[in-house]
């Protein structure tokens, strides 16, 4: 699908963030736009809502699915790991790279995430520049370096 309305002819890649904290969402959005111009950040605060939304979208082959999804672990109701498990067990969604985005550096948490199908684990850095640099590397890898299932 080609976005004819946008300045840029090239369609922006959708990067999805699931985080219950507005502050973190703002920070991520800020850093992501700084890190790369050709992405469109979509943020969600509720895991259950997002999962439902994505599942609905996945039913349609032409739906615009995110290129990357960042998941926070510590969330009320459904936490990041449960979301990850359900996300990775859903057809058409499980091919989307899922990168955990958390402050928790516990080995158990990291192990658990990878075992449930996480494609990466990104620690929330304390500084903004640091976050920008990390996101740039992550985007560079997942968007430029490796091939995705999305149509170009």
């Amino acid at each position: 699908m080609i976005n004819t309305k946008g300045k840029c002819k090239v369609q922006k890649k959708i990067v999805l963030l699931l985080d219950d904290s507005k502050e973190d969402t703002f920070l991520f959005n800020h850093a992501a736009t700084k890190a790369r111009q050709d992405i469109q950040v979509e943020t969600h605060l509720h895991a259950a809502d997002l999962l439902l939304d994505l599942k609905n979208k996945a039913k349609f082959p032409d739906a615009r699915l995110p290129h990357l999804i960042f998941i926070d672990i510590n969330m009320p109701m459904m936490n990041g790991m449960d979301f990850l498990q359900k996300f990775k067990s859903t057809e058409n969604l499980n091919c989307i790279p899922a990168i955990m985005f958390s402050t928790s550096a516990y080995r158990e948490d990291i192990k658990c995430c990878y075992s449930r199908g996480a494609d990466g684990y990104l620690l929330k850095p304390s500084g903004n520049k640091e976050l920008v640099e990390k996101l740039r590397q992550v985007f560079s890898y997942w968007i430029d370096t490796v091939e995705s299932t999305h149509q170009t």
């Binding site: 904290s21 502050e23 973190d24 920070l27 510590n74 402050t103 304390s126 500084g127 903004n128």
Partner: peptide, 19 residues
């Protein structure tokens, strides 16, 4: 963890504001 979260944010916001 609980104590780390807001501290990290404060640091980040301060940095953005500073920039």
């Amino acid at each position: 963890h609980d104590l780390q979260e807001p501290l990290r944010r404060i640091a980040a916001f301060s940095e953005i504001l500073d920039d």
